[in-house]
Amino acid sequence: MKRLIPGLILLLAAASSAALLPARQVPAAAPSASVLLDRVDANAIAGNKILIAEMVIRGRRDSRSVKSKSWVQGADKAFTEYLEPAREKGTKMLKLGDQLWTYSPDTDRTIAISGHMLRQSVMGSDLSYEDMMEDKRLRQAYDGSVTGEEVVLDRPCWVVDLVSKTGDAAYASRKIRVDKERFIVLKEERFAKSGRLLKTFEVRRAKLVQGRWVAAEAVFRDVLKQGEGTVFKIESIEFDAAIPESLFTKASLRA
C-alpha cells in the first residue's frame, strides 16, 4: 500500500469520486493538455512525504482493512511498512526506480517482485504492483488531449484523454478528469490496448495539505474483479518531511 504512494498518490492526489455532468464539446478556453498535465504532476509529486493510509478491500465475500506507513521521495523512491492487520504487520516494501522488493518477517526473506508477479494484487486490493510501479509523471508517460468538461464531486473538471507514449506503460490509454482549479485528478478510467476498461479510480474526498490537494479518500477498482473496489483513506500526510536516505536501501527492509 505504501508503494502505492508514488503511482497511486500521483493519482490519488489528483483523483476523487464523482457525480458527473457530461458536456463533450471542447471549450474554446481549454488549456493545452501538456500544461494541464504539468500542473497535475506538480500537485501530485512532492519532494518528500510521509503518510499513513488505510486500504479497505471490499472483496466478493468480505471486507478487510490494511494500514500502512509510507516514506516517499519524489516519484522514484518509496518505502512502505504495513502496520495492520497482524498477519501483515512488519511486511515491508521498497521501490527504487523500476525495482521493487518485498520483505516478509515470517520468512525473513527479501524477494524481488518482477515479471508476472507485478500483475499480482497488492495485499488483495484492486491495485497491482504494476500500478504501484507507475512512477513516471503523466506528462512524461502520456500524450494528452483535452476532450471536454465534466463536473465531478461538484467540481468543474477538464476531461483529458491520455495515450501512452512508449507502449510500455501498464495502461495503453487513460481518461482523467482534472479539477480546473485544484489540478487534482478526481476521476479516471484506465484501458488496455484493446480498449477494454481495466481499472477505475474515483476520489470521494479531497483535502488541502500544505498547499497541495490530495485525495483523502478514493476508490480504486479493478473492473475485471468481482469485488466492490478498494477504498484508500489517507489518515495523515506530511510533505517535505525529513527522510533519511538510508531508508531507501535493501538493508532497511530487514531492520
Binding site: 472483496g59 515470517d106 520468512t107 524477494i111 494484487s121 495485499m123
Partner: peptide
C-alpha cells in the same frame, strides 16, 4: 524453500 503465493484474500503470501 520459500513459497510465494496468494492468500485467499488475494494478497501475496510468503512462507518458508
Amino acid at each position: 524453500a520459500t513459497l510465494i503465493g496468494t492468500t485467499m484474500h488475494g494478497a501475496m503470501s510468503m512462507a518458508n
